[in-house]
Every structure is written in structure tokens, then in C-alpha cells.
Computed example of a mutant assay.
Amino acid sequence: MSDQTLTCKSCGGSSFAVGQLGHGYANIRPVNKKLTTGSPILLTYCQDCGEVASIKVKELCNLKQY
């Protein structure tokens, strides 16, 4: 999403930032893999109202099925 201009659906704002959700036990992981570290989730959010514009897995390689 970094190569395009974002407009907030909620307030019309154009100022966005990226935050990280998940640290340790809050990481996303495959249902069938209990012993993996998983990956944090990156959220792109509007700095004016807090609306989340994008949700993305930070380390996709940790979630791939083998």
C-alpha cells in the first residue's frame, strides 16, 4: 500500500501510519502448527481517526505450509 495514496474511508484523512499487532503469544500462526513462532501482524491505520486501512502478515515465511 506504500506506492499508492490512501484516503480514509471513515473520515477522508490522508495521514497513515503502520503499527504492529502481536508480540509473543499474540502472533498469528497456522492452526495445525502449535510450536511455531508465527508472525506479527502489521496494521496501516489513519492517524486522524484510527480506522484500519490494511492488515498484513509481517513474516509470511513463518506461516507457509510444508
Rank of each mutant, 00 (worst) to 15 (best):
S2E: 12
S2Y: 06
D3E: 13
Q4N: 10
Q4V: 15
T5W: 00
T5L: 12
L6Y: 02
T7E: 14
T7G: 05
C8M: 11
C8V: 04
K9S: 12
K9A: 15
S10V: 00
S10A: 14
C11M: 14
G12H: 11
G12V: 09
G12C: 13
G12T: 09
G12N: 12
G13D: 05
S14G: 11
S14N: 14
F16E: 08
F16Q: 06
A17Q: 13
A17S: 15
A17W: 08
A17C: 10
A17T: 15
A17V: 00
V18Y: 09
V18P: 01
G19R: 07
Q20H: 01
Q20W: 00
Q20D: 02
L21V: 11
G22M: 05
H23W: 03
H23G: 07
H23S: 14
H23L: 13
G24A: 01
G24E: 11
Y25W: 03
Y25C: 03
Y25K: 07
A26D: 15
A26T: 09
A26C: 00
A26R: 04
N27Q: 05
N27Y: 05
N27L: 08
N27W: 06
N27D: 07
N27M: 06
I28E: 01
I28V: 08
R29F: 06
P30C: 02
V31N: 03
V31L: 02
N32H: 08
N32E: 12
N32S: 14
N32Q: 08
K34R: 01
L35Q: 04
L35N: 07
L35P: 00
T36R: 00
T36A: 09
T37F: 07
T37M: 10
T37Q: 02
T37Y: 02
G38Y: 04
G38P: 02
S39Y: 08
S39M: 09
I41N: 01
L42S: 11
L42C: 08
L43N: 08
L43C: 10
L43K: 02
L43D: 07
L43W: 04
T44Q: 12
T44N: 09
Y45L: 14
Y45E: 05
Y45T: 00
C46K: 01
Q47D: 11
Q47W: 01
Q47T: 09
Q47Y: 01
D48V: 00
D48A: 13
C49H: 12
C49A: 06
G50P: 03
E51Y: 06
E51P: 03
E51G: 02
V52I: 15
V52A: 11
V52H: 11
A53M: 15
A53Y: 05
A53I: 13
A53Q: 14
S54D: 15
I55P: 00
I55Y: 00
I55C: 12
I55F: 05
I55V: 15
K56W: 03
K56G: 07
K56T: 10
K56R: 08
K56D: 14
V57W: 03
V57E: 11
V57Y: 12
V57R: 01
V57C: 01
V57T: 06
V57G: 01
V57S: 04
K58W: 09
K58E: 11
E59C: 06
L60V: 08
L60F: 03
N62H: 12
N62G: 08
N62V: 07
N62F: 04
N62C: 13
L63E: 02
L63Q: 02
L63N: 00
K64M: 15
K64P: 00
Q65N: 12
Q65L: 09
Q65H: 05
Q65R: 03
Q65F: 05
Y66I: 06
Y66V: 08
